[in-house]
């Protein structure tokens, strides 16, 4: 029984992988066939072959890597500050009900504003340089981290806290050993949402005002009527977003190891 069970797991993984690549492969095949038969307007949808050529070019001259690196560094800056601020403030608001009451209205009003709506304000206040972009990424990362941290902290199981109280444990131990670990899954949800909003925000900011970065690359490609370059930019954004999320999932499984032993929960 046991051996056949443990054998099935990798089998399942391979099957899952194969199933997951069916659709992308189909789409690319359809695209190639369609291009050969002139189904699409080539000045909008280039042939895979053209994209390939363009891709080798931007790899060789290093321009793609340059744009990606610039965008990535911006994201890291804004994200680290935004996530840190969100988590720390979230812990405080989650812990102290007075703070919660003080912030509830402010959070309620500000939260529904899409970060991108703030771009004009940030440009006006901080100029079109790095600061306004990092401010935007900060906001994008901040909200999901804040809200999910608050939820997580409030969710801490009062029954576990009772156990600690009965054992005479102090406030610091209760925070470190119970409240924070119970909040970690929720905090991680916030961190993952935060990085994906941060990544969308950098692209948006670069499309509006920038001379380098993936967002800029897309706008430039449109202006120069280079659809192949435009596609490369868009696909690069998708792939990097995926890689970031895979990395976060990997971190999550390492840090919140006890959720894995519950089985089932396979991340989203």
């Amino acid at each position: 029984m046991k051996s056949s069970n443990s054998k099935r797991i990798p089998d399942n993984r391979i099957t899952a992988f194969i199933i997951s690549i069916i659709l992308p492969v189909l789409i690319i095949a359809l695209w190639a066939v369609g291009s050969d038969n002139n189904w699409f307007n080539q000045s909008i949808i280039p042939t895979p072959h053209k994209i390939n050529l363009q891709f080798s070019k931007v790899i060789e001259d290093g321009s793609l890597l340059k744009h990606i690196t610039v965008s990535f560094v911006r994201v890291i800056y804004g994200y680290v500050i935004g996530a840190l601020a969100g988590v720390v403030l979230g812990i405080l608001v989650g812990l102290f009900s007075k703070l919660d009451q003080a912030f509830i209205l402010l959070i309620g009003v500000l939260r529904p504003i899409p970060p991108i709506a703030c771009i004009p304000l940030f440009i006006l206040a901080l100029g079109i340089g790095e600061d306004s972009k990092i401010a935007l990424i900060f906001i994008g990362a901040f909200w999901p981290c804040l809200l999910n941290t608050i939820t997580g902290i409030k969710q801490a199981d009062s029954k576990l806290i009772e156990v600690a109280k009965v054992l005479g444990k102090g406030k610091f131990i209760i925070l470190k050993d119970i409240i924070l670990p119970s909040a970690l899954p929720s905090i991680f949800t916030g961190l993952r949402l935060g990085i994906s909003t941060a990544w969308s925000c950098v692209v948006a900011a670069e499309m509006i005002a920038s001379s380098v970065g993936v967002g800029y690359l897309i706008m430039y490609a449109r202006e120069m009527s280079k659809p192949a370059l435009l596609f490369i930019g868009i696909i690069a954004i998708g792939i990097i977003g995926l890689l970031i999320d895979l990395f976060m999932q990997f971190l999550q499984d390492k840090i919140i190891f006890w959720e894995l032993s519950r089985g089932g929960k396979n991340g989203t």
Binding site: K159, L160, E162, V163, V166, L167, G168, D177, I178, P181, L184, I256, F257, W258, R262
Partner: peptide, 17 residues
């Protein structure tokens, strides 16, 4: 002193982590 009185609950109330 909490070393003198102990309590066992209905649920095990273990820390999952």
């Amino acid at each position: 002193d909490s070393t003198e009185v102990g309590m066992i609950f209905q649920e095990a109330r273990l820390f999952p982590w």
